[in-house]
Nucleic acid binder design. Sequence first.
RNA 1: GCCAGCGUAGCUCAGAUGGUAGAGCAUCUGAUUUGUAAUCAGAGGGUCGUGGGUUCGAUCCCCUCCGCUGGCUCCA
Length: 647
Amino acid sequence: MSSTYSITLPDGSIKVVSAGSTSLDVARSIGQRLADDAVAAKVNGELIDLTRPFDSDSTLELLTSKSPEALEIYRHSTAHLLAAAVLELYPGTKLGIGPPIKDGFYYDFDRPSPFTPDDLEKIEQRMREIRDRDLPYERRLVAKPEGLKKYEELGEPMKCELISERAGDIFSEYTLGPQFIDFCRGPHVPSTKRIKAFKLLSIAGAYWKGDEKRQQLQRIYGTAWFSQKDLDEHLHKLEEAKRRDHRLLGKQLDLISIQELAGPGLIFFHPKGALVRKMLEDWMREQYLRRGYSLVNTPHVMRESLWEVSGHLSHYADNMYAAIELDDARYRLKPMNCPGHILIYRDKQHSYRDLPVRLGELGTVYRYERSGTLHGLFRVRGFTQDDAHIFCRPDQIEDEIVNCLEFAVDVLKTYGFHRYKAEISVWDGGKSGKYDGTPEQWALAEKALHRAVERVGLEATVMADEAAFYGPKIDVKLLDALDRPWQLSTVQFDFTLPRRFELEYTGEDGAKHQPLMVHRALYGSVERFFGILLEHYAGAFPTWLAPVQAIVLPIADRHLDYAKTVQTQLEAAGLRVEIDARSEKVNYKIREAQLQKIPFMLVVGDREAADGKVAVRTRKGGDLGARAVAEVVADIAKLVADKAPTE
RNA sequence: GCCAGCGUAGCUCAGAUGGUAGAGCAUCUGAUUUGUAAUCAGAGGGUCGUGGGUUCGAUCCCCUCCGCUGGCUCCA
């Protein structure tokens, strides 16, 4: 063994170190600041502890707080700190897993009595105490049989399970203080004093290994950041998200409600909400017609035998409402629109010349979702899909997919989303046998998806083995104003239904062929899309969507008549206008209009009435001064016509 | 569905370690006639989510159910 190693740094410089030296030593030799900032080391491409000695000539990259990988390691170390605190406070608690996640970490625990919110504070306090003890995260190597025995003696059955499944002959474990040991790959920060800013956020139940047949554990979620400032920013962002919550805004702006008497997961659109929804639907229907779709309508309940043919009864029954018994048969509420559209396609013969046939519908479907999963407008039991099915020939599919994707991108742009990407979900090549359809069909469809993404210029990632069993798909995901991801549009091939329903068209050769079927929804669910928009705009819908686009605010009762003439002029231009005729001060009326996020407030008093003007105030720009009514009408009308993203 | 927390006036919330409840906003009435984010006064409004149990007495303690919230699982 050599007594020195040469360590190559990212800038190409080489440090020669003696055996036994660590990355931390190298960092110190460069500067104490770097040593303090370094979280872990990447040695020969492998993430390891700063305190692990070199055992060969190596390349070294020091991960500092600027690296995303470092933040994960840091959060993982914070999770260990959490577990150590829990074991100190509640001896006998059994450990599950404690990984870093987006924005934080969690740790799963098994103990007879659940944690309470008060416990959370105690645990956080104890974490700070342990942190201040400046304990090292020490890595040890253990032989598997010996280790298994040890964890069994420690009373850690879940750790034993993990070790038997995942560990090699020799595995690593990390200690923190005299008591805490965790089977863990690492790496970790060198010591607890490195952990600066964290907060425990919530307690939740979670099944061991995500399997609801296994025991349920207590999961504690927390967040951790390199600085108090980052933590504060994150907490602030959580507050902002809360402020924008569509359930809150939906109530405040009197847009929607969910009525206990009617049932959970069922949405009531109030007058203003229904108006916004109408705008979304009108836009979509207009686009359908422009883009060569035919609009159809299909029934909400249909015979159970239809769902037998479609296969929903065997594959999807758990999500379907129970049958309704009528005189002649059992009927089912539709969970999907496809079979209805297929029946329309099948109702007549098709020539290859007729294709593609594009049948679209804003179809309301009902699905039984488990009660615990319901969430505002985002997860409901009755919702309306902007659903269409395209029946086409093999030579047409690429163009059809391109059209769908262009359409999807138009949706995003129209509603002010500028950051999005696509995910192509493909099969496993047929290895598992769980996918329907022939290899030729899969190859054809997947090729079309790839080429279409390329042609449209969408950024896309390929998700292997993520396809639906009936065909590959493209999902479009977007980031909203708060950088939160949402799944929106989906374009899916379906090899199963054309076969089940024996769909056909007559080809050029006079023979019968089976058409390809594409299922696509762009808003996804109108209700959910409405909720996404509500949060994206924080309730301040752009003028073209705003349920009330302008409100006329007379200063005194004597201005009411003039206010009405102003309203009439705006309405003549097709605008949605209200008058606040109450005997209140302007300040009061402005405050209310502002809270209702009405884009334009038009104040009228003696001066305006005399000059045929209105004093314009926008919800964002404040008082803009008096202007002629006709000009204001024209400006607002133009914003509406342009579907301008803001006022 | 499961785990945990929650459910008090239309809304946001207070409250009593068991003796049938209160504020602000909103609503209604009256006064005020107002110039860019809340004018003043008065009044009405609650079987304290539901059903049961314990108790002399329950909104409070216990159980059931319903709903909501955070997760798990699932997904548009």
